[in-house]
């Protein structure tokens, strides 16, 4: 395995994400995004996927997040080989174990901050209206948005919106958190703060964070850095 280690905090814990010889191409094979990726990511790590545009960062995140399937190779997430899952099972995996944060936040514009955060819980069993609200309020408080819970996304700044996105991704306590360029639409300071927030969250929750980025401040804060170039892990 050729990846650069910035020394993970809990390196000794077991692998939560493992890919082996993963290939993925688009446009009927004309564009090859990934060329035999092998990575192991242990539980509790805070990993950055770095690389220039088109290097395959997002593609890899999509495969790990069970949003897409590889052409070749194996992706194992939280003990499940995604190859063996059908669409319904992949949806369930995402619903229960994976949290997403997007570059463009992708909040639901018609829902308030609080409702956006509650959204992942709406489709999980065992949550009542009250328990959803309680969980959402608690995480909003932790991302520093107390008092803003009734605002609509367009009434909030970019940083605040991304905090909501973080809260929405974390509220269900996922095993894997995937963030695709989470700071790209934010100014440097806000971006840094968001990464710090995510790191803080990682510390209190038992979660793996994988962030794709080409923002050096993010890379600096990452504990593990995987560099992708032309769909391959840079040696």
């Amino acid at each position: 395995m050729l990846y650069e280690l910035n020394m993970a905090a809990n390196n000794n814990s077991k692998t939560i994400i493992k890919t082996s010889k993963v290939w993925k191409s688009y446009d009927n094979g004309r564009v090859t995004a990934l060329r035999g990726i092998d990575i192991d990511i242990p539980l509790g790590s805070f990993t950055a996927l770095a690389g220039p545009s088109g290097s395959g960062k997002t593609t890899l995140l999509n495969l790990i997040g069970a949003l897409d399937v590889p052409d070749k190779g194996t992706v194992i997430v939280a003990g499940q080989n995604l190859e063996h899952l059908n669409d319904r099972e992949r949806t369930q995996l995402r619903r229960e174990k994976i949290g997403f944060i997007f570059q463009q936040f992708n909040l639901v514009p018609v829902l308030t901050a609080c409702e956006n955060v509650e959204l992942p819980l709406e489709i999980l069993p065992d949550y009542t209206r009250a328990s959803r609200r309680e969980a959402a309020m608690s995480i909003l408080k932790r991302v520093g948005l107390k008092g803003m819970e009734h605002r609509l996304p367009n009434e909030l700044s970019g940083g605040q919106q991304q905090r909501i996105a973080v809260a929405r991704a974390l509220v269900k306590k996922p095993v894997v958190m995937l963030a695709d360029e989470p700071t790209a639409n934010l100014d440097g300071e806000t971006g840094g703060a968001i990464v710090d927030l995510m790191k803080e969250m990682r510390d209190t929750l038992d979660t793996v964070f994988i962030l794709s980025t080409h923002d050096p401040r993010v890379m600096d804060r990452a504990e593990t850095l995987i560099r992708l170039v032309d769909g391959q892990v840079e040696s």
Binding site: G65, L67, D87, R88, T91, Q92, R94, R95, E96, I98, F100, F102, Q104, N106, L107, V108, P109, L119, P120, I123, R168
Partner: peptide, 14 residues
Amino acid sequence: TREIGALRALGFNS
């Protein structure tokens, strides 16, 4: 479309 994608990513089934 992006919102729909996000909802699907959050685990909303089709």
